[in-house]
């Protein structure tokens, strides 16, 4: 579903934000993407979603090359950006309708999905109000609904739990599990190792643009016996 092969991104011709990184996310997998601040996580996600062009390497989403088949690749992605503050002058329902139009969702599908998602995230009463009046958490919930309204095969989520209340956070995690069970791919960045531990089939750890680990949590723990995930992470990223 996601193929990220030998990708490099250099800023200002000097700073290697991502250095020849390769990984793959298959259908049915939930993959956690973690690393210290400034390790290249956001740069990687921006390249995956077509926001940033890579300097070298190949990126494929759902079989489509992000450079050559940009529109098809982007249509396959449900992306939640790190900031939910966009188009705040629109009402929640106007924003969702606009996004559904962008992703060409049929009338029936959008009504069904918006109803279902808004109820799961307890946002039904707020949708007819301008997003300007929403709290940060409500905006984040709306972004989650918008990212999922076209039922994309690939979810790419940048710190999706930020600002969500415990119930919404739980709902999102449940939805990630349900989505992966249907054979889709979920790729999300996080700093919360407990979330990665409980949710992910696989973790990818990155530091200073270099891939440190790509594999299952069981495998990682077996390499570092009697250590907590937190200790393993600190040991890997500090040395």
């Amino acid at each position: 579903m996601i193929k990220f092969k030998n990708v490099t991104k250099v800023y200002n011709k000097t700073i290697k934000a991502v250095n020849n990184v390769s990984f793959e996310v298959r259908g049915g997998e939930i993959v956690g993407f973690t690393g210290p601040n400034g390790s290249g996580k956001t740069t990687t996600i921006k390249m995956l979603t077509g926001i940033l062009p890579p300097d070298s390497g190949k990126i494929k989403i759902n079989g489509f090359d992000i450079k050559k088949n940009m529109i098809q690749a982007k249509s396959s992605i449900g992306y939640i950006a790190d900031s939910p503050d966009m188009f705040l002058r629109l009402k929640g329902i106007e924003f969702l309708n606009f996004i559904a139009d962008v992703y060409k969702v049929s009338d029936d599908d959008r009504k069904k999905r918006v109803s279902e998602l808004a109820e799961r995230f307890e946002l039904t009463d707020a949708l007819s109000s301008p997003m300007m009046s929403y709290s940060h958490g409500m905006r984040q919930k709306l972004m989650v609904i918008a990212a999922l309204v076209h039922n994309p095969p690939v979810w790419i989520l940048d710190e999706p739990m930020t600002g969500l209340d415990p119930k919404s956070s739980y709902e999102l995690k449940e939805m990630m599990r349900e989505h992966a069970k249907k054979g889709n791919a979920v790729f999300f960045s996080t700093h919360v190792l407990e979330v990665a531990e409980k949710l992910c089939d696989k973790v990818i750890i990155i530091k200073k643009g270099n891939l440190l680990y790509d594999g299952t949590l069981e495998n990682l723990e077996s390499q570092h016996l009697n250590q907590t995930l937190e200790n393993i992470f600190l040991e890997m990223t500090e040395n």
Binding site: I93, N97, A100, V105, S106, K111, V114, D125, S133, Y134
Partner: peptide, 16 residues
């Protein structure tokens, strides 16, 4: 925030 009947809100979702 105005509280509007949700079923009416959803009816507003139309393809363009």
């Amino acid at each position: 925030q105005r509280s509007v009947d949700f079923s009416k809100t959803v009816k507003g979702l139309k393809t363009r």
